[in-house]
Write a protein that binds this DNA or RNA. Sequence first.
DNA 1: TTAAGCTAGATGACATGTCAAGCAGATCTG
DNA 2: CAGATCTGCTTGACATGTCATCTAGCTTAA
Lengths: 161, 161
Amino acid sequence: MSSRSGGDAFPAGPVRWLDEREQRVWRRYLLMTSQLTAQMNRQLAADAGLSLADYEVLVRLTDVPTGRLRVTRLARELSWEQSRLSHHVSRMARRGLVAREECADDGRGALVVLTEHGRATIEHAAPAHVAFVRASVFDALTDAQVDTLDAILGSVLSGLR
Amino acid sequence: MSSRSGGDAFPAGPVRWLDEREQRVWRRYLLMTSQLTAQMNRQLAADAGLSLADYEVLVRLTDVPTGRLRVTRLARELSWEQSRLSHHVSRMARRGLVAREECADDGRGALVVLTEHGRATIEHAAPAHVAFVRASVFDALTDAQVDTLDAILGSVLSGLR
DNA sequence: TTAAGCTAGATGACATGTCAAGCAGATCTG
DNA sequence: CAGATCTGCTTGACATGTCATCTAGCTTAA
């Protein structure tokens, strides 16, 4: 459990505990997200030797024609902290998936570039990954459920900022 | 992006790429879950020096009257891998939140026990954490949305096993 | 132009998670 | 009851994330 119901050992205070239904939904939310992430990671690792994080980075790079992006821009696209990306790029570079390049415009800047190996790897990985997402998520839901999910994600996200 | 639309650089094959709407929902799903987790972690860390994982462990232990559980049982309740739990218990024990105890029934077994400090910590952490979850999630959703979410979680989860 | 302050990135320290291997105590079977 | 096997748990190696800090290159304004 990740939350408490009322009437237990904790002081009641002004806290509105989650009711039975909310607790069930919340537990299932935590379970579902962790399982789904874990399975995507395992599927990608088995199929292409990638983590989901690797995959996300590679996809952003294939999205631009030049296959290269400034570090800060890439971090923003991914909604990652800049230092996380910096560490991750180092690891991916060690594996030959991307490379760093100096930035002509700005002496401080750095570009992350998709390598040939990186491109080949994501092109190999994408079909099975998309198939997995489709099978696990979209094929399991009705159109109306997807619409509601979209609305839910929007509401929660706008509250988080 | 975590998935591809059709008609791009990848071989088409028999793959059904995600359409525009599916892509948008999927991106938002990944964004929302990572943001929500990050913010829960930060809130818990700031308020009580706990990670969400610590919190989950402590809650399971407070759920049983004796405040102690076998390692395997606790791992199952959390849906964690056993070795993850073992590492995590070591770290929590170092901080005095839990302790290990031998198991009388089974010489191989081990019990994880909530300490006084652990109990005090979760009792301090729970109200603000629940308030955060309520404010971020449940207060942002209508009753009908929560029902649909429950159904979605159920569908996806049953497909994942 | 030059010092103050800002910005882009990298890095070190450390928490966390995964996988594979190890180990000792049960259990099973001939 | 002895060896084979299974089980419960721990450990080591290593990938990943976060936070705080550092460096060097921009920008600004007196």
